[in-house]
């Protein structure tokens, strides 16, 4: 299963980005192959609609779960209809590798 995690940078030591639509990078983590892909978020500076555009980015990667600090109002219904699970993590001090080890538990 693939999981997207919003990241403030492009390394496993980067911290979770608290915003979904305007995060710096998306980390696409595959729980089976343990592979990591860092995708720069090209929507982060959009004037409008960064959220839905970012849903498109992660959904096209085939993820089933998304981990972020918060999700805006416009994206929740789209994620619901795509049956992608949202995980809100308030503890933004965690790094990507820490979050991955939590997912593996």
């Amino acid at each position: 299963m693939k999981v997207a995690i919003t990241s403030t940078g492009n390394s496993p030591d980067s911290k979770l980005d608290s915003r979904f639509g305007r995060c710096s990078h998306f980390v696409i983590y595959d729980t089976e192959t343990k592979s990591l892909e860092f995708v720069p978020n090209s929507n982060r500076d959009n004037i409008e609609g960064a959220g839905p555009a970012s849903v498109q980015t992660v959904a096209s990667k085939g993820v089933e779960k998304v981990v972020s600090g918060e999700f805006g109002a416009k994206v929740k219904s789209i994620f619901d209809s795509l049956q992608i699970q949202l995980i809100v993590l308030k503890d933004t001090d965690r790094t990507i590798s820490q979050i991955i080890s939590m997912l593996n538990h």
């Binding site: 929507n43 959009n46 409008e48 609609g49 960064a50 839905p52 555009a53 849903v55 498109q56 959904a59 096209s60 085939g62 416009k74 789209i78 209809s81 795509l82």
Partner: peptide, 20 residues
């Protein structure tokens, strides 16, 4: 220009985000 069309070619999903 407003990201109001949501499209996933792979799973043939398209929708209009009316708010945008």
């Amino acid at each position: 220009s407003y990201n109001a069309i949501f499209l996933l070619e792979g799973i043939k999903t398209i929708r209009v985000i009316e708010d945008l």
